[in-house]
Amino acid sequence: MNRERIVGAAQDLLDSEGLAALSMRSLGKRLDAGATSMYRHVANKDELIELVVDEVYGEVEVPDADGRWREGIGAAAGSLRAMALRHPWVTGVLGQVGLAYLGPNLSRASQRMLEVLGAGGFGPLEADQAMGAVIAYVVGTVTSETAWLAMVARSGRTESELVADLQGTQDHLNETAAADAYDDPARYREDSFAFGLGLILDGLDVRLNRKS
């Protein structure tokens, strides 16, 4: 038994059953180990969640700081969204993890984003605030997105089938300019995410140009 094995098993449990299913007891059953033996490596459930969040944060890719801040931050935001969609439980804790604990992966990703923004011309404070705004947008958007996908899963239908049913019962959906996009709901979700992210990046661009 070691910390790496405990964290890996916790991630598997969270990915398959969600945040509510995680407890030291349920994890012990997976590992065929008592909670006492796990407490030798992890202080409590909160610390375990912090460790698992940092583990999945290792999947977030941030490009090198080459001066093209908009492309770099856009790519980082997309990578963060993709990670959160692979691990839907993470949206429930991303807002709080990091305040008390900055693991190596989370710290690395944050530092690289700050470097991208700094190389693009943002001062230290503005870079930190810009990063916070982008991350808040991603977390907020993916929280809604994962809730929708959970509803799709519970329905027993595909996403396209569920959207078609909703269109049939809610006439106003057919009156929107985006109605055709519902033929490919996944693409619509991606386009909606990119649109909102673009608005934030546009605003940051205006602020940056105002300084020059």
Score class of each variant (00 low, 15 high):
166 L>S: 11
41 H>R: 02
48 L>F: 10
183 D>T: 08
198 G>W: 00
6 I>W: 01
156 G>D: 05
174 N>M: 06
29 K>R: 15
50 E>P: 01
161 E>T: 08
85 L>Y: 10
176 T>D: 00
46 D>E: 08
92 G>T: 09
158 T>G: 11
190 E>H: 06
78 G>C: 05
90 V>A: 12
185 P>L: 04
112 R>S: 07
72 G>M: 07
166 L>T: 10
207 R>T: 00
6 I>K: 00
64 D>L: 15
122 F>C: 02
28 G>L: 06
33 A>P: 00
44 N>W: 02
204 L>D: 05
183 D>F: 00
168 G>A: 07
49 I>K: 04
156 G>P: 05
94 L>D: 12
174 N>C: 05
197 L>K: 00
126 E>R: 15
100 A>C: 09
32 D>T: 13
131 M>H: 13
171 D>T: 10
41 H>D: 00
154 R>E: 13
48 L>N: 05
84 A>K: 08
10 A>K: 09
99 L>D: 11
190 E>N: 09
127 A>R: 02
91 T>C: 11
170 Q>Y: 04
98 G>N: 10
113 M>E: 14
92 G>A: 15
187 R>E: 03
31 L>V: 07
120 G>K: 03
206 V>T: 01
26 S>Q: 15
118 G>I: 03
111 Q>T: 08
81 R>S: 01
168 G>M: 02
165 D>V: 12
23 S>V: 11
98 G>Q: 14
166 L>K: 09
54 D>F: 12
17 E>L: 14
169 T>S: 12
62 V>F: 14
165 D>C: 09
147 A>L: 15
81 R>W: 04
167 Q>L: 13
204 L>Y: 05
109 A>Q: 08
28 G>H: 00
153 A>F: 09
108 R>F: 03
87 H>L: 02
36 T>L: 12
26 S>I: 06
12 D>H: 07
30 R>K: 15
16 S>M: 07
125 L>N: 09
95 G>Q: 08
12 D>C: 04
49 I>A: 03
6 I>S: 00
130 A>L: 06
154 R>A: 08
33 A>I: 06
44 N>R: 06
81 R>T: 04
31 L>F: 02
99 L>F: 13
32 D>K: 10
87 H>I: 01
117 L>S: 02
37 S>Y: 00
40 R>P: 03
101 Y>K: 06
195 F>G: 01
5 R>F: 07
9 A>E: 12
23 S>A: 03
84 A>W: 04
80 L>G: 01
165 D>R: 15
122 F>G: 03
16 S>P: 01
211 K>E: 15
180 D>L: 04
77 A>C: 11
58 G>S: 13
59 E>H: 13
